[in-house]
Nucleic acid binder design. Structure first.
Lengths: 337, 337
DNA sequence: ATCGCAAATGAAAACGTTTACATTCGCCCC
DNA sequence: GGGGCGAATGTAAACGTTTTCATTTGCGAT
């Protein structure tokens, strides 16, 4: 039923070897016969059986992406970045997202084994012990956004620390001193790094001012709660730095409800630059992370490992963030209505 | 290097046939030997070569998703829906997104041929002539969100028409009569269906009122422009229905800038229920489409076609939308501050 | 004890490629 | 004219599975 290389060979009156050579662009075939074979192949709509091919070449031309249960923009931008980079190299992309715990992640990983040449892994459940247990033979992998330090795999991280540091520096540049942080969930790597950046920048630029950290968990609701707590303090901060945009939005509503003006009374900033950041009022000053680049660079790194396993050293790369200044930080109040 | 079924067989002192049977859960193998084989397999970290398997079973256990160059929430929700449904059935997901034109889409489709058991296709470039040209052998496919009518493939659509119809009915229920539509791009299927729903509902519920359609293109900027045009009319509409949320947001800013109150002076609604809809003020009444369900149902449909090719009839299914009522339509003004 | 039968296991073919090796062919050079 | 050589092509093995068919084994019935 399906047309195979033999059908093409028969029709073109050559051996299967010649068909293979012609179609794979080897140089030892006459231009004449190449033409003939190519013609027959398209006429017959021949498409090679990838399984048979990978059986012998030991390559699948596919890379896998293991992603956490991620919502929204972040997820799609990441996949887009990976996909674009993969396509540019003629690679296919096998995705497995949304697994909730370590065992699910492990299952997904095992299932992908043997179907891919390498993997891009971003998962909070993939930690040191996970990797030890799985000990994934010699499947090349690049880990994304992980606190792990491993000598086996390259790592591609977002500079959460640097972004937070820069944001605090910016706020201090705006004249604010008492800057509170609404932190992310406790065991989240991104959250921890942002917290670290906040602390470091405070220590550096406002050493006399004590830090103030409210606990949040990256949800809008926790941001709202933190906002109300802030308002109840006897000494209110001059600026609030939420560890992500959605908490900033939640906090913003708490402030608005209490008729506290942003940024006049309290400045407010976020992290991530999700689309909503532009739409709240005042628009949110935030930290932009180029997620698409993250995916793209990670894939490129993986490909390099694939193509030159010998010369490629394991590396840890960090992707810069940039600060997006809008009205909520008080730096551009002059443009406010 | 890689451990094969032979290694397992040797180690377990059985034939490869028995290993295959044991691991695939056939019933003709002693519980005793099954245990032994399973033990050896896990100890050796044996993972079957998918290529070799698919070579003989003629199944890849993989389905492909061909998606347009989509940004944001929609994209990720769709993939999530597909992925979850696929995993539930032990299927893998091969994605190819972001192709800009028909030839790119065709290339992506061809590249996937032979690697997948079936495909989920959503692409504006996949039209009647495209399918005719490609004539994809007998690869089962399900088309998503397409105006196409074909006897070869099942189709899964979002009820854009019904959603728009219901929204207009709702606005009329709120007491509005002169309702303007900010339409989407001209050759977009979603846009056309929403326009059709608007017109039908107007004709049905407000037959004496003339319709008013402003041209937009699904961008914030076009919504903003349309908003300013509306304000310049000698007779302003009582309500504006933007064919997507992002245009509604753009329009909202135009109204705000002109100190027109929403919903008191003009009501405003959107379509899609993107996250931003909740965050603008007033929060946007809109039409929610369950994108995750779309992906999920489409995959389920495909699986059915795969498993029972004979009995499964080609079908066109339409996925309901629901109206999400927030403050911007004037129905809940009483809850406003 | 022998036969027959079912259950368990093994041997080998088949799937569609790629590629190392063998073969053919035409041609140039002595 | 024959030897040698390089280019083009063909032959066949190999990849790792699944599955058909054959074989062995154990056991109950005669």
């Amino acid at each position: 039923m399906a047309v195979t290389i033999k059908d093409v060979a028969r029709e073109a009156r050559v051996s299967v070897a010649s068909v293979s050579r012609a179609l794979n662009g080897h140089d030892t075939v006459t231009e004449d016969t190449r033409q003939r074979i190519a013609g027959v192949a398209t006429r017959l709509r021949y498409v090679p059986h990838s399984g048979a091919r990978s059986l012998i070449t030991r390559r699948t031309q596919t890379i896998g992406a293991l992603l956490p249960d991620l919502h929204g923009e972040f997820f799609s931008e990441l996949i887009r970045g990976i996909d674009v980079a993969a396509r540019a190299r003629g690679l296919h992309l096998l995705v497995s997202s949304s697994h909730g715990d370590a065992s699910e992640a492990a299952a997904a990983l095992r299932a992908m084994q043997g179907r891919v040449d390498g993997m891009l892994v971003m998962s909070p459940h993939v930690d040191a012990s996970f990797l030890r247990d799985q000990l994934l033979a010699d499947l090349p992998m690049v880990l994304m956004n992980t606190p792990l330090e491993t000598e086996h795999y390259s790592i591609m991280n977002v500079d959460n620390y640097g972004g937070a540091f820069a944001m605090v520096r910016h706020l201090i540049g705006c004249g604010h001193r008492r800057i509170a942080l609404i932190a992310g969930p406790e065991h989240n790597y991104d959250a921890a790094e942002r917290l670290r950046g906040y602390c470091a920048a405070m220590a550096r630029f406002a050493p006399m001012v004590s830090t103030q950290v409210m606990q949040g968990d990256f949800t809008e609701e926790s941001g709202n709660r933190a906002g109300r707590e802030l308002l109840a303090l006897k000494v209110r901060p001059q600026a609030v730095f939420a560890a992500n945009d959605i908490m900033a939005a939640g906090c913003l509503y708490a402030l608005k409800e209490a008729d506290v003006r942003v940024p006049e009374d309290i400045a407010l900033t976020g992290f991530d630059d999700i689309p909503i950041a532009r739409f709240v009022s005042p628009p949110l000053t935030t930290v932009r992370t180029r997620i698409t680049d993250l995916g793209q660079r990670a894939l490129e790194r993986l490909v390099q490992t694939l193509e030159e396993p010998a010369t490629t050293q394991v590396s840890v790369q960090t992707l810069e963030c940039e600060i997006v200044i809008r009205a909520s930080c008080g730096a551009t109040t002059s443009t406010e209505a």
